[in-house]
Amino acid sequence: MGNAKDTLIPGISPVIRAWASVGGKKESEGPLAGEFDLLNGENSLGQESWERAECLFQQQCAELCLKKAQLTPDQVSLALGGDLQAQCTATAYAMRTLGFPYAGLYGACSTMTQGLALAACLAGSCLLPQVLVMTSSHFCAAEREFRTPLGYGGQRTPTAQWTATAAGACLVSPQGKGPKITALTFGRVVDLEVTDINNMGAAMAPAAAQTILRHLAGRGAQPGDYDAIVTGDLGLVGTRLLLQLLEGQGVHLTNHRDCGLMLYDRQTQQVGAGGSGAGCSAAVLCAHFLPRLAAGEYRRVLFLSTGALMSQTTYLQGETIPGLAHAIELEGCV
């Protein structure tokens, strides 16, 4: 599995010089509440639809990020973003208001690292000076589109995960102050033939394991060389599987963290196997990891977002659920 060629090292290590995180109600009751830039106590934000509300989460987040970077909107050279809504409408409609040059991404819940890895390539080759990367997810918008109406009385299976109502945005530049992206690995699509749509952590774990192994091989590194190896939203089931899969390859992870398990308190918040969604890893990266990297508390972090790439149609047609994970390696400020 250790294909070293997959790992890319940007010519110069681009810098994440500003970031912002926005969370919703459940996120404001979770363990990371104190670390968000902005928390909305109510998830509709007064909008008529959940889709519009998610769009507004992204706008809030982008505007906060620009403010922290002290940039005006017309200085943004490109926005890379995506979300879980069909045809990525949350991001597209946010961009309608924000007006940046925009390239939409779809990587399901892996979108944040997909965007950051692409931004690192673009900024790392000095092609673009200010690349904004942002993603979001909204529990209500995701439920009504992919599961059942919000008022429907269904019992969640214990393996099901809770879509985060959150957004995260990062500004990537060739130079500046902030955590650096020193290496990146684009993942390959992996399918362990999981068919249960309520168990996406399991579907994504093999992709995460493979990308971690490829990245370690590409860098000639050991897990212990990192302060933390972080996955996006594997949740409880996916985390267990990831550790087992890596164990099977002789790699023992002791410093693994999963954003889906960090965002909520599983004991008290009734989120099933943990958080998920494109906004989950984005918000936890921006709320928790980037500030700590900037403060020098972490020196080297391997950060992955993991996505499950099925659709309602392929699921109903009996297809198995393929997973994808991209990794970026972050270096803290000294």
Partner: peptide
């Protein structure tokens, strides 16, 4: 229903919920 599971699914009230909740949602 989050607690009661099939206790609220199987009675006619569950059928009604399955009609009325999408009506409200959509």
């Amino acid at each position: 229903a989050a607690k009661a599971g099939a206790g609220t699914l199987v009675p006619i009230t569950g059928f009604a919920n399955s009609v009325i909740s999408p009506a409200i949602e959509f």
